[in-house]
Each structure stands twice: as structure tokens, then as C-alpha cells.
Design a protein around this nucleic acid. Structure first.
Lengths: 194, 194
DNA sequence: ATTATCTATAGATCTATAGATAATGC
DNA sequence: ATTATCTATAGATCTATAGATAATGC
């Protein structure tokens, strides 16, 4: 009855995370997750007795934890030059499946319990917003940037990078990381002639 | 048999557009659209014989046409100062339901026919990308900006503005348009001290 | 006559559960 | 004995269609 760690359970979580990240909560069916994990859909209830919503919340929290760690590591490794830090953060974000916060807010969240919405909202903030805000604050303390609305800038930056998932690399003629670096340069230096 | 213009049909299109814009193609049911339009769901087939997918494509194309016109008008009215133009464009975008291109690409598009995907992709590009690119090119010709990857900048700008829909105005303590203006200032002037 | 609407229903799914069966661990 | 899996099924929905009925336009 108690969900235990097992190889099959881990396969279920990985499959679920890939599908939920790509499509969100509603459109993904337990059958698709089961098929991807090599299990009959009804066997999912053995590993995650709480059903679809509990599974979604569990894998999203895993994903947030990974984002928080990955982003923080990317920012730390390339410190203390903000430009290099933001390049590394963008590269790391673009190595992951898209994290579409607008879809989460408008489509996924309304289907979940209030308690789950609360937890996921906090998780998203801690994972994506906090690490970048800290790096911006440190850069300001060093005199690298002349701005102090860190929440605004980190939200805008992350949103801008995530929106690159809607751009085809083939159409743009360059990779998403290189597009992200170009946008970070604009953010740092401005569009106006210096 | 032939779909005719009528008051009821217009109600259906308006209801469908609101719901599809908010949730995307899959999660919206014909029953929800019917209820919002004050019709039994089966009556939708009288007004849109092609069914759900045709209805989605029709209302998305309407939405693209409105975006193209609204954005172009906002940019034209406040010309020729780029900052004022981008403020107006952001204000106009934020007056509309969110246009989540990542969700469209990853969730909605895979459920549609290839021909419909083609039409909608072009429509999105013409509606959101082209007007901003033209304004940027004109600003560069005037010497206002020192940058020439207009596609990159307009994509990043629009993505950044749309991502504000994931931010609660209550949490941020300011309105989305004012957040957008702050981000446009950063884009124009840069984060580094001048 | 034509247009607009509804009721009823077919046929596909979906989530979730009950209960049988097989594999594994003492 | 416990753990893991499957089959079968209940009960909700969904899209789409057929066909009856009401409203409207000549």
C-alpha cells in the first residue's frame, strides 16, 4: 500500500515528468504514462495510489527541485561575471523540457486542489525566480548593474528564455542557446547606441 | 448547411475564442462552448459543420487578425518614438487574453492536421512578429537603436510580455502594463550603468 | 421552405477500482 | 507473505450524428 522506491516506480515518474512537462496535466492520460513506462495503466495505481493528480504534483515537485539545483549550480559555477552567469543559466534552462508557467497557471492549476496549487506555485517561484534574483542582487552589490527590481528582471528574463521554445531553430537559423545569449546581451547593454 | 453569418454564430465564435485562448484546443469541450454561447452543444454543428478543429482554427485566425491589427495600430499611433511605441504595443497585448505560443506549439498543434498547423503558424508570425519587427527596423533606420536582429528582439520582447500573465499583479504589487514598461526600459537602456 | 434548436444515442475514451494471477523475499 | 502486474469493468465524459420540433422568411 505504501508507495515504495523501486525501479518500476522510478520509470513511472520519469515517463510522467516528460509527458506532463510537454503537455501539462489534463491532456496526458494514465495510459500514455503507462505505455511509456512499460506498464499497464492500472498498474500505476500500485506505485502512486493517489492517482493522476498526486502523480502530477510529485513529478512537478521533482522537476522544480532539479530546476532549482541546476540553475543555482549554473549561476555559481560561472560567477562572478553576470553575463557569463546568465549565459550558463539560459543554457541550463534550455537543456530541460519547457516550463510553461502561463499554461500551468491558466490550464493546469485550475484542475488541481487548492493545497496543491499553493505548493506548486511556491515551488515554481523557488526554483526559477529565487536563484536568478540572488545572482542579480549580488551583481548589483558588485556594481555590475544599475537596477534593483530583481523580481521583475528575473521574471522577464526567464519568461523570455522559455518563450524561445516556441521558435523553431531551423526557421531562426541558429540554436536556442545562441538566441538566448543574444537576448541577454541586449538586456545587459540595451538596444540604444552607447 | 452552409455556415452563414448570424448573431448566434457570432456568440459561438466569441465564446470559443475566449475558452480556446485560455485553455488551448484539447481541454475545452464543445459543451463548455455551447454553455457559454447559450446553446446546446450539438447545435454548434449547425453553425460550424466542420466540428471542433474547424472551430478552433477559425477563431484562432480571427484572434491573429485582431492581434495584427491591434498591434500595428498601437505601434503606428505612438510613432515615431520607439519607447512609446513599445509601451503601447505591450499595453495592447496585455489587454487581450494570453497568447501562449509555447503551449500552441507543444500541446495544441500536435492535435491538428498538418494544413491547419501551417496556417496557424504563419498567422501567429504575421500577427505578433511582423508588426514589431517593422517598428524595430524603422527605429534602427532613424538611429534610435543600434541592433539589427529584429526577429530575435521582437520574439524575445513578445515572449517576455506574454510571460507576465504568469505573474500575479497582487504578488508583484503592480499592474502588468507597468511591469511591461519596466522591462521595455531595460531592453532599451540595458542593465549596466550608463 | 429554410434556418435554428433540441433530444437521444453511438462509439471512443478516461480515471479509478476490484479482484485474479504471477513473481519475489523470507 | 508480500509485492507487482494484469484483466475486466463501472461510471463519467467527449465528439459527432440522426432525426424530431420549433421559429422565421417568403
Amino acid at each position: 500500500m505504501k508507495p515504495v522506491k523501486s525501479e518500476a516506480r522510478e520509470r513511472v515518474l520519469v515517463a510522467a515528468e516528460q509527458l506532463f512537462a510537454e503537455k501539462g496535466f489534463g491532456p496526458v492520460t494514465l495510459r500514455q504514462i503507462g505505455a511509456k513506462a512499460g506498464l499497464n495503466h492500472s498498474s500505476l495505481y500500485h506505485h502512486v495510489p493517489g492517482g493522476k493528480e498526486d502523480l502530477y504534483v510529485e513529478v512537478m515537485e521533482r522537476s522544480f527541485a532539479r530546476h532549482r539545483a541546476g540553475l543555482s549550480a549554473a549561476l555559481a559555477e560561472s560567477a562572478p561575471q553576470l553575463r557569463a552567469q546568465l549565459y550558463a543559466a539560459a543554457d541550463w534552462l534550455l537543456s530541460q523540457p519547457p516550463m510553461d508557467l502561463v499554461r500551468m497557471e491558466y490550464v493546469d492549476m485550475p484542475e488541481l486542489s487548492q493545497a496543491h496549487v499553493q505548493r506548486l506555485s511556491e515551488g515554481a517561484y523557488e526554483a526559477l525566480q529565487v536563484p536568478v534574483e540572488l545572482a542579480l542582487a549580488a551583481a548589483q552589490a558588485r556594481g555590475e548593474i544599475a537596477h534593483d527590481d530583481f523580481a521583475l528582471i528575473s521574471g522577464g528574463l526567464v519568461g523570455m528564455i522559455q518563450s524561445l521554445y516556441a521558435v523553431s531553430e531551423a526557421v531562426a537559423g541558429k540554436s536556442r542557446p545562441s538566441m538566448a545569449h543574444g537576448l541577454i546581451d541586449v538586456l545587459l547593454d540595451g538596444l540604444r547606441p552607447r
